[in-house]
């Protein structure tokens, strides 16, 4: 679906109300309902959001981010575009915006991993498991270094695309930026990544 981007003036984006996996009812019904109905959204999407947040800032901060994401979403539910059957991209956008308060924490963890090879976000068990994969660990350190040195807005787009698996239009809608900006940020992030990883473009 192509549409004029309604959030940033002067730019045109392709925003897609594409259907996702089947749900009992469209999310819109629950977004626009009362607090009790809103909890249906929590039950549908909290796990995915938590996973995304935990991979960026760790599970403890992810707890706070997920509850804050739903709190913010509920307070702003009138802004939800009811043509979109899934609220997940919208929730990812809120979560990503809230995560900006923790940019330093996120970057510190990447840098620590890059420097020491130990990921501060992992439990001891998980660290032991990952240490079995020496080659993977080496690449993780290089990747962490590359992620740490990315501009924050490029990192947001890259992780929403690669980790959350949102489409260009979904990222544009989630971050309230034009799709062209999504594409250029992703392109720049990947160019930067390849350079830091030493892989060919």
């Amino acid at each position: 679906m192509t549409t004029i981007h309604a959030d940033i003036p002067g730019l045109v984006a392709r925003g897609s109300p594409r259907p996702r996996e089947a749900t009992d009812t469209d999310d819109a019904e629950h977004v626009l309902g009362d607090a009790d109905r809103f909890t249906v959204l929590f039950d549908r999407h909290a796990a995915a959001l938590h996973r995304y947040a935990a991979r960026r800032v760790g599970p403890d901060l992810a707890d706070d981010l997920v509850s804050q994401t739903f709190l913010t979403a509920f307070a702003n539910r009138h802004r939800y575009d009811p043509r979109r059957p899934s609220a997940l991209p919208w929730l990812y956008g809120i979560c990503t915006n809230l995560m900006r308060r923790h940019r330093r924490t996120e970057a510190r963890a990447y840098k620590a991993l890059a420097k020491t090879g130990v990921d501060p976000l992992r439990t001891a068990d998980a660290t032991d498991r990952s240490l079995d994969r020496v080659e993977a660990q080496g690449m993780s350190r290089r990747l962490a270094d590359a992620l740490a040195s990315l501009k924050a807005n490029q990192r947001d787009v890259l992780l929403l695309f690669a980790v959350a698996e949102l489409t260009y239009p979904e990222i544009a809608a989630a971050l309230r930026i034009p799709e062209g900006t999504v594409r250029s940020r992703l392109s720049r992030a990947r160019t930067h990544l390849r350079k830091r990883l030493g892989t060919t473009p």
Partner: peptide
């Protein structure tokens, strides 16, 4: 590069139902 990013910290444990219930 995208595949690598997608796999980064992929093996972190998912939140348990109890943990999500607490967040809820």
């Amino acid at each position: 590069d995208l595949r690598l990013v997608a796999s980064f910290r992929e093996d972190l444990d998912d939140a348990t139902p109890e943990r999500l219930a607490s967040v809820r």
